[in-house]
Design a protein around this nucleic acid. Structure first.
Lengths: 255, 255
DNA sequence: CAGTGGTCTAGACCACGTT
DNA sequence: ACGTGGTCTAGACCACTGC
């Protein structure tokens, strides 16, 4: 365990994550090249002056990120597609604002901002009661002045408080993480294609006949509470959704 | 480590996976209910007569699958949405054939089956040279006699051998796993919406103006070799793609 | 057969939440 | 103060691969 002081706060970073980051950096730099073998766990243990179990936890991180391939008896190799995986990892989806930083000018227009009671479908998705009010926010995102996506979010006041229209016009995720100090956890998304509706035509400037890519998602905090149920509708010609699947947790013998 | 004999072959199952499956089963059965605390790691260690580290590896499995929430100092709870996560887990995407078993009659028509040399784009995606021949297979999937998806797959002969039109009309994934004895590993997918093309209209019976949901993917074996680059085009009214995101490997301090 | 990664232990110390 | 989960160790045995 390593302790650092960052702005009067003590931050501890576990050794295995430090090692994982170092190894990730070596792959990024090309110190370890795709297809090449990494040093054995024993050698890495010597190099970092730690036990083999700790090295293994570090390698677990890289393995989960699809950066390495481990084979009993044979050794650990850098994945052939490690570079593209690194690219994708560093541009993780975390709301639109972060995704486009440095790649274009993002602006957000709040089209609707109100507080109301949830529909029964929303109650189910957010696991809240019919008496818990929600924010109902409709926003249009532009990238470089061109309409990019139309986002309809519903968030319970029991989880997110003091949201304002001004905040919604910037980044809600940033507000949640920085101001409220909450941590975003898992999400479940359903991706579909759809025919453009009135709103799409008006705000995204679609024609009839131009398909919409819709992402419907429920997002949770790291403590498990659902904090957002949203539909985001994209113009079909402005990119798609990239998904990495690493065959986790399909361990064979159960249903 | 537990040893079992399955059809003359000795199969070993690690203890932590056994325990993970048992715990998963308890969540499925409702022995542990959403929001409820699991027994502490210490107690679980006593129950399964094993060390705490082994229990932790088992919990890692459940945590990666988004079934539990662990908090230092507070304990381990069953995730509020554990039931829906279990549903999704058991219907993992593994080619269309498996996905629809029991839910409808699946039939496959092979529209094209040939061997040719790869385009430069295909060479890049499959990490093969321009002299490695590939299978080029176009297939139409029907579910309950209704057109469901149009699949265009390119697979290198250096990885997949002895593929035939008959096999392609059943399940290529089953052939790869059962007959060739290869293990499917990670995949990278890009999901987009598109305007219907000639083939879509002809085979999927789309109208002009009915969008297509396209999944373009590269799929790898567990040894890292890419074995399939494909575009699968779905009718927009026949379901979407479900994606779970568990915030893995974003450990904060690196780029 | 030597070297590799996979699993497992018994015990230790720490950080964190709750009481 | 206590109990929880997080990290770490030193060493052990095993399964698998490749020479």
């Amino acid at each position: 365990m390593i302790k650092l002081k960052v702005e009067k706060k003590v931050v501890t970073i576990s050794q295995y994550k430090e090692i994982a980051n170092t190894l990730k950096e070596r792959i990024r730099n090309g110190d370890y090249r795709p297809g090449q073998h990494l040093p054995s766990q024993k050698k890495l243990g010597n190099e970092f002056n730690t036990s083999r179990v700790t090295i293994q936890k570090a390698l677990d991180e890289l393995s989960n990120a699809n950066l390495i391939l481990r084979r009993q008896g044979s050794g650990t190799k850098v994945a052939p597609n490690s570079q593209s995986t690194l690219d994708i990892l560093s541009s993780q989806y975390e709301g639109t604002t972060k995704l486009f930083e440095g790649r274009g000018k993002v602006s957000t227009k709040v089209l609707k901002f109100q507080i109301r009671l949830p529909s029964s479908h929303e109650q189910k998705r957010l696991a809240i009661s019919d008496s818990t009010p929600v924010y109902d926010v409709l926003r249009l995102r532009n990238v470089d002045e061109e309409p990019y996506e139309l986002d309809h979010s519903v968030m319970p006041l029991s989880v997110i408080q003091n949201l304002t229209e001004t905040i919604a016009s910037k980044s809600i995720y940033d507000f949640i993480e920085t101001t409220l100090g909450l941590k975003v956890g898992s999400s479940i998304r359903k991706i579909t294609a759809d025919i453009p509706q009135k709103n799409d035509i008006e705000y995204l400037k679609c024609d009839h006949g131009e398909p919409i890519l819709q992402v419907s998602q429920t997002v949770h905090l790291s403590d498990g509470r659902a904090f957002e149920y949203s539909q985001t509708r994209h113009r079909y010609d402005k990119g798609g959704i990239i998904v990495i699947n690493n065959t986790l947790s399909t361990n064979g013998l159960d249903a």
